[in-house]
Amino acid sequence: MKSTRNFRTTSTPPTNTPITQRRLKTKPVLILIAILLVGNLFWFILWLLPSKNHASGDEIVATVDGEVITRQQWLSAMETRYGKETLQGLVNEAVMDKAAAQYKIKVAEEEVDLELAFMRSSQDGTDTTIQNLSDKELRQKIRAQLILEKVLAKDIVIKEEAIESFYNENQSLFNIPTSYRTSLIVTESKEDAESALKELENGSEFSVLARERSLHTSSASLGGDIGFITSQQTNMDPAISAAVQKVKVKETSKPFVLSDGRYGIVYVEEVLEGQSFTYEEVKGHIERELAVEQLPSAVAPENFWEEFHATWFYGESK
């Protein structure tokens, strides 16, 4: 189907990947690529805001062998390294809000809830978006993505039969298992695991101990947080999936052996009960997904900057 707008600039090669695979893998990745650029660095903006306690750029934030590093040096370095991506994300969110008003597009909280449920159930082990963003930030990013997709799909007609057929043929996509927000500590031996557990029982914070002692490098820097996992997850050690199902919310497991012979301890932060979505609940979602599938090229929020007269510090045209 020919595009209804002429602002697409990035070509997308044809793909033979089944839509049932792309729904839970490609689609979340497309959302999360944009989210990750901003989410991991969003906190940086907070440090740029003036406060009465840190009004002076000469405040010393670190010393090395007597040589000082000032707040101004620190903020300047962060702006140089991360400022562009952070600002770009903020502009994109504002542009999508303008697009929603212009095209009279609404995004209900239930739609965001649905996307969150799909995202949590299909979380890739290498993706740390959920861990890096607060719930509010994550919902903001999802809302902006939904606005973008609705703008692009607004003039594409999808027949009712196609929507019903997709729902009937892909029931498993809409039956989401119970998921557990989990943190993990991995140790070399059972003795090390028991030592870590004793520290936790004596009052140590799980996140602090994970940073100090966990051998699971991808989660250690995140305080052990590995996001939401399910019993049906194939990219997770089965021992971890089994362990979380035995632990109550806000509690820590006993040490258990992992498939590689090392030992693990898990902490369950939150449990989201499984959900089964009816056709009516996901009809709009499927219709939008099928419409976006028909677009001949990729579009990002930056393609709307000119339309909504967006400018920024870096002065580059998008």
Rank of each mutant, 00 (worst) to 15 (best):
N132C: 09
I156H: 07
I176G: 10
L90V: 09
E289S: 04
T10G: 00
I147Q: 10
M96F: 07
M236C: 07
V268A: 08
P28Y: 13
P18V: 13
D192Y: 05
A108Q: 08
S214G: 08
E188G: 10
K84M: 09
P18T: 11
T80G: 08
I130Q: 02
E110W: 00
N235Y: 06
N303T: 09
P28V: 11
T252E: 06
M78K: 10
W312I: 01
V64Y: 11
S183R: 14
Q275N: 06
I163F: 11
E205M: 02
R288M: 15
L36N: 13
S183W: 04
I176Q: 12
F277N: 00
A239H: 02
N235W: 12
I229G: 06
M96K: 09
E307F: 02
P296V: 05
G274T: 00
F174T: 04
L295A: 00
F118V: 13
S134V: 03
S121C: 06
V112P: 01
Q233Y: 02
V64E: 01
A239M: 06
V95S: 15
D124F: 14
K150T: 14
S51G: 12
D225C: 08
A242D: 15
K98Q: 14
N235I: 12
E306Q: 01
H216L: 05
D124L: 15
A99S: 10
D58V: 01
P18S: 08
S121K: 06
R8M: 07
P238E: 10
A291Y: 14
E191I: 04
L48K: 11
W43G: 15
Q102K: 12
L184Q: 05
V268Y: 06
Q72Y: 13
D97L: 15
A117M: 09
V186Q: 11
P255M: 00
A153D: 15
G227E: 02
A77F: 13
A77C: 02
W305I: 01
S172W: 07
V68K: 14
L49P: 02
F118R: 11
S172C: 00
Q131N: 01
V257R: 13
A300L: 11
E191T: 02
G223S: 07
L272R: 12
T126V: 08
T12C: 04
M119Y: 04
T128D: 03
S253K: 04
V64D: 03
T178V: 06
P177A: 11
Y314Q: 04
Y103F: 15
L173H: 15
M236V: 14
S134P: 02
V257H: 03
I156C: 11
L32A: 08
A162I: 08
T80Q: 10
W74S: 06
S189A: 03
K25N: 05
R5P: 00
K52C: 09
D97G: 13
L222R: 07
D260W: 05
E287C: 05
I130F: 02
H285G: 09
N6E: 13
S253F: 09
L87R: 02
M119E: 07
S179P: 04
V282A: 03
Q232Y: 06
G57H: 06
V91G: 01
S134I: 04
T182K: 10
E289V: 13
I19Q: 03
L36H: 15
G284F: 12
K104Q: 12
K106G: 03
Y314H: 08
V186R: 10
Y103Q: 02
